[in-house]
Design a protein around this nucleic acid. Structure first.
Lengths: 334, 334
DNA sequence: TTGTATGCGTTATCAG
DNA sequence: CTGATAACGCATACAA
């Protein structure tokens, strides 16, 4: 009952044929007679024959498995991306193995190690917040395993990546706030070590500058979680810094901000407008619904996977950096 | 540059040894001389030798890969479970491949098909809402591939499963509502086709009964999403049905309820108390924070994976159904 | 049109 | 202590 797997050999024996004939018949090889083909196909279906992945992989030295390394699965954005990756993978009969770095440089290395046996056909990565050196990717690269980065690419040339136009997304968000009359806009920023953290800050600054609003260090602070968002508001209030809007680097931070604002008795959006980033599930569910910048994660996953497949199949690729639009979704916090 | 994989053969040639000797040296076989061992180990490290997974899998007919089929990854609960699964998998150097059914019976079948090549060592499944027949699992079972169900097991004996005590969770939630003085408690239920849907309803009814509160059909309706939660409240109000509490089958539904209540000008918790189920991320972030029933998803994933590994390794297993506690988390909506 | 031999990377068996 | 060989399941160059 255990090793009840049907192999090409079983069906060859049953039919009095050689394995090669069966193999060819199954692949619809032109050299095989119609009758033989029919017999083989018929029997193989009856026996529910399924080719052995591992044997195929060994033979072709191609596993049809790609690896994915992300910071945390438990995030609407990342799980959307995975869904997009899966969608394209399924179409190509490829499998996806996901490993989490939990935002830790060390765990990222371990995940990479797990893949470095070189049995995956390709890798899709979004680096951890801690990651600032990139040698650990070299080994894979050297082995000729294609890598595509998304959302948080490494700072290096010659890498393929799929990113959002975080700069423009942030610029638009801030410009929108200015348009509705806000003048003292705070930015709760992500870590400067990440591409997205820097780009969003850059967009924020540029929008201010283009609109003749002076930049103030006091209005920018690092806060990229629910808890830090709340603490940020309290810090601002405690220091007596005036502000009439807060633009956060992600929606969870915005949630913390909303909550702290309420605690402080500050009205949203009357006194302070809030704009998040990410359009998490939660954004439309909270009360009031959060204005935020939408990042189509699923789309990003699709593009990343397609790019990777093209690299695996050596399809001549045009661009190395794919930039996806991020667009502002106006709801009731502004 | 392409096929730069180092094999056992390369290091054998380099050292003028046979592959078998190298293989044994690498496995620390007692028959091998210390010097040979040292030389082999040293060179293999220098060459960054990594055994070829596929060859090993083929030889041992064990891939060290397990499959997981879940309804939707984009859910805090399911992604927590996956994290738990991964955690245990990593410890055992096993890999996890996740497929989504998107709550569709058909896609569940396709996912299963993808695994039915029989190259996975085991399978962990939570069935889709649509699934009510279970023949599609038979093929895998027949092949002797162990399956462990979680959260939503199939209605069948002889299956291993990990579930929450949904009955008790619901019972406790309702009893708590009664204790704080609520008498007209509505239940926004999940689909009757799912184990959890039925169990939670059962717990709801029993708690009422044990406390001498008559059960009313009017107070139970099917609503298991953000949108349906809102619609449910409106339906209740439109029909003029009195209620002073709502117990929902999940947190998203509760979010919809909260929002609709606010729209209707009904105060929470003064006029109506709300209890969710799941303790999603969102529950503690909303304002007011949601009272809910916590289901430790990560723990569930850990137990499921450990159970599966035991089955794969033929460890004599005691119980077939593992039941995890679900406990009420009181916050500000009650 | 079909069969034979070989190899993919590894380990286990059996000889030296 | 070490080496040659077969086998895992499949595909393919080469024979027949």
């Amino acid at each position: 009952m255990k090793n009840s797997r049907v192999t090409i050999k079983d069906i060859a024996k049953e039919l009095g044929l050689s394995v090669s004939t069966v193999s060819r018949a199954l692949k619809d090889h032109p050299d095989i007679s119609v009758e033989t083909k029919k017999a083989v196909v018929e029997l193989s279906q009856r026996l529910k024959y399924k080719p052995n992945m591992m044997a195929l992989s060994l033979k072709n030295s191609r596993s049809n498995i790609v690896g994915v390394i992300i910071p945390e699965l438990v995030h609407y954005f990342f799980s959307s991306v995975i869904s997009g990756i899966q969608e394209v993978a399924d179409k190509h009969k490829m499998r996806v193995i996901v490993q989490q770095s939990n935002e830790s440089f060390e765990q990222e290395g371990e995940a990479l190690d797990a893949f470095s046996d070189g049995w995956i056909d390709g890798l899709i990565v979004s680096i951890s917040k801690e990651t600032s050196t990139y040698e650990h990717f070299d080994e894979l690269q050297a082995k000729g395993i294609p890598i595509v980065f998304f959302d948080r690419p490494i700072e290096q040339d010659n890498v393929d990546s799929v990113v959002f136009d975080d700069y423009k997304g942030a610029y638009d968000a801030v410009e929108y706030l200015l348009k509705i009359g806000r003048r003292s806009i705070a930015h709760f920023a992500g870590p400067a070590s990440t591409h997205v953290g820097r780009e969003r800050l850059r967009g924020y600054k540029k929008a201010l500058q283009d609109n003749g609003i002076p930049f103030s260090e006091d209005l920018v602070l690092y806060a990229d979680s629910f808890e830090k968002g709340g603490a940020g508001v309290e810090a601002l209030v405690a220091k007596g810094i005036e502000f009439d809007a807060i633009f956060t680097c992600n929606d969870f931070t915005a949630m913390g901000v909303l909550k702290a604002l309420k605690r402080e008795g500050i009205l949203v959006p009357d006194q302070v407008a809030v704009v998040g980033f990410g359009d998490e599930d939660i954004a439309r569910m909270v009360e009031p619904p959060l204005t935020t910048v939408r990042q189509p994660g699923r789309e990003m996953g699709r593009v990343a996977m397609q790019t990777l497949i093209d690299k695996i199949d050596k399809v001549p690729t045009k661009e190395r950096v794919h930039t996806l639009e991020a667009s502002i979704i106006v709801r009731e916090t502004t």
